[in-house]
Design a protein around this nucleic acid. Sequence first.
RNA 1: GCCACAUUCGUCUAGUGGUCUAGGAUAUCAGAUUCUCAUUCUGAGGACCGCGGGUUCGAAUCCCGCAUGUGGUACCA
Length: 505
Amino acid sequence: MNEIRVRFAPSPTGPLHIGGVRTALYNYLFAKQHNGKLILRIEDTDSTRFVPGAEEYIIEAFQWLGITFDEGVHIPNSDGISYRQSERKPIYRQYADFLLENGHAYIAFDTPAEIEAKRQEIKNFQYDSHTRMQMRNSLTLPADEVKRRMEAGEQYVVRIRIEPGEDITVHDMVCGDVVINSSILDDKVLWKSADQLPTYHLANIVDDHLMRISHVIRGSEWLPSAPLHVLLYRYLGWEESMPRFAHLPLLLKPEGNGKLSKRDGDRLGFPVFPLEWHDPKSGEVSMGYREQGYYPEAVLNFLALLGWNPGTEQEIFTIEELVQAFSLERVSKSGAKFDFEKAKWFNHKYLQMRPEAEISQAFGKILEEKGIHCDDSYRDAVVSLMKERASFVPDLWRDSAFFFQRPESYDPKAIAKRWQPETPEHLTAFCQILQDIQPWDKQQAHDRIMQYVADHECNMGKIMNALRLCLVGETKGPDIFTIIDLLGVPETIERVKIGIAEIRL
RNA sequence: GCCACAUUCGUCUAGUGGUCUAGGAUAUCAGAUUCUCAUUCUGAGGACCGCGGGUUCGAAUCCCGCAUGUGGUACCA
């Protein structure tokens, strides 16, 4: 029985994109479900696009998300295997040479500038079976000249030699069978002259084979080059053990056209990266899900449902449930627009499932940062009362700050609507009532104030909101007697006094 | 331009020839919870199933064409 082995293979050119997180998640779920292995491989064969810190970022992001790998750059192994492609150069060279020897690849001396000139000259120019005999390569040049040029140190690339007129079928577990004729494929570069490294295509196939990858689950931007990959497996003699392919639909912009990009996050105000990212070059900071207060489980749950569905009406899944329910067959074929509101909704659900003590502790950290000190039991009581209206822990501060500090200002609109000349008089009476209740009893306070309101024929909405204005600063928040109960009578009276002094019509 | 893939409420989606007068979620709106705001609950609106042709007794579901969208078309991955 063949072991299920899948990989996530990012290139360290920047922070991990949320679409990449989803691809990694699907790989993870698939591996776990089949008791297989997940591998993290760094595809850094483009020396020009390397970004310092990107690899570390990727590893940290997965740590936060709870996506664990069985093998990878960050996991020590005793076999001396490197999971970083830049460190595997001799391995790739060996297979490039093998392809050269058996005629499935050739040496080409054409410089990028020359090829660019060709593209200008001939429209739809492609380096392929139709054009390669007009170029400078080991197919057109005498063998001894090729040798001489190479020995003289002339720069060259290795290109795959693709013969036209053959239908190549990619059996894709998401898209079904995709047939492409080899005539439209070009002789892709396998080995670059510029940095003396293999291209993605070669390195990817060699590594997937050597690492015994059983399933390649990747973004659909790779579907067009899948036939090339099939050919490479064939030419390398590995077609029998070729992995199965599954190309995932892309994540699209929430509005307008195109795929989701960093700019959309900036423009619409939501994170596109799991963790905050500090760009080493520009110094620019991009927000992260973690810093926004998201739970990793909520992010994963949301992402899982973006492009996959269980076929039932269940929406909230633990990671274990996702492992059980996931299937590549139920991955949708079309791209999904990113719905940020739904991500928030998921986090709200997850927050509500959290133990109150845990939320309170997290909220305590925010209070500390604000320089606010209070009893744990008081904080617990506030959290218990306020958590259901929060989607994120930081929302608790937004909604509950008045429990910890007196209002800094009073909402002018609410004043205009609720405050009346006789308001101070009634509020002062309220204070007296509160003070008279010994020992303190919330229910009694409610009953007696209501009685007062009825006796004096006050406008209920106006007077109660005026009181709220004094305590909260605006006409928001939970039940007013619960607020008084938590604040305590002395603080309540103090706030009313300040309110009366400061609020003017 | 060429090639590939896709197309069901604003958004994510269910749907594999009759049970679809198209289901769920989210978002929106309304009502309720008799002080507010939020949550929650209930309800409403919202999809001529991209368009046009077929096939069939019957099509969102199968076929063809078109349109639109997305991806690819690099010595980037």
